[in-house]
């Protein structure tokens, strides 16, 4: 194990129209770790994801991935540094088939199967297609390869989006509310799925509202409120922290010892 954390966020800040959306946030994430990023609505969780993946450029602060400064790396190249993400609202390509969506995930890899001008399904299956199909099968998704993603149920699309991110072979996976909109059984399945991903050595950074999922999936949590970090520690103790309780329930409730309905 190297001593350098895989992800290190240092004093990150960004404002939109004079409003500080992220204010001096710092945290680190070890290789192979599982960190939850939580906080009330509008706390800036998705904004952090957008800063990490380069959709927004920060006003101040730094982001390091594997010790390397990636502040000036354009969003397009960040996936090449080993960082892939999912989206709060599923953003699969509506006119691409299931397998094609996963093949898009391979695009950033230096060792991707097939060159830019190599046919992907000419005369039987090419390597890229075969690899994508294998990955889908491995993750237990059985759909017709050519099927349009828009016709599939929500839970399956959510999984396909995860598989697309995995196809990039990331070191760090950013998951934006992976369990949102899933029913109980689907959430169970997702948990097992994420456990397997984590066991294979992928580091997880998860934005999630479901505290049950957060506690069973992640060992550590960072809590944001109004763009500031108010807690950084074990998930087990999050719900006893006075600042966190105040953020979720308002100052009057902060004297209560435990609130089970946090988030």
């Amino acid at each position: 194990m190297s001593t350098v954390p895989l992800l290190s966020v240092e004093n990150l800040s960004i404002s939109f129209g004079g409003l500080k959306v992220i204010d001096d946030v710092s945290f680190t994430l070890e290789q192979g770790g599982r960190l939850a990023l939580i906080g009330p609505n509008g706390a800036g969780k998705t904004t952090i994801f957008n800063l990490l993946s380069g959709v927004y450029r920060q006003d101040a602060g730094h982001v390091r991935l594997g010790g390397q400064l990636i502040d000036t790396v354009p969003s397009r190249q960040r996936i090449g540094f080993g960082m892939a993400r999912s989206f709060q609202n599923i953003r699969l390509m509506p006119h691409l088939g299931v397998v094609e969506n996963v093949m898009l995930g391979q695009h950033s890899r230096a060792d991707r199967p097939g060159g830019l001008l190599a046919p992907l399904s000419f005369l039987g299956r090419s390597k890229a297609r075969a690899e994508a199909e294998a990955l889908l099968a491995e993750m237990g998704i059985e759909v017709m390869p050519g099927q349009d993603v828009s016709t599939l149920p929500y839970g399956i699309r959510k999984k396909i989006e995860l598989v697309r991110a995995l196809a990039a072979r990331p070191r760090l996976l950013l998951l934006d509310e992976p369990a949102a909109g899933l029913n109980g059984a689907e959430t169970e399945e997702l948990m097992a799925f994420l456990d397997r991903i984590s066991a294979s050595g992928v580091t997880l950074l998860v934005v999630e509202h479901d505290m049950g999922l957060v506690r069973s999936l992640c060992t550590r949590a960072v809590v944001l409120n109004f763009g500031r970090k108010i807690y950084d520690g074990p998930t087990a103790e999050v719900q006893r922290d006075p600042l966190v309780l105040e953020a979720y329930l308002g100052p009057r409730h902060s004297d209560k010892s435990e609130a089970s309905d946090v988030a």
Binding site: S53, R76, M93, H95, E100, M103, G114, L117, A118, L120
Partner: peptide, 26 residues
């Protein structure tokens, strides 16, 4: 030919969602 290659796949991805395509390294 172009539309059957990886370039074609990328072309269709860009058509569908340019922001996500960019994040995928396109």
């Amino acid at each position: 030919y172009i539309m059957s290659t990886r370039l074609g796949l990328v072309v269709r991805a860009v058509h569908d969602d340019d922001v996500v395509s960019d994040l995928m390294g396109v």
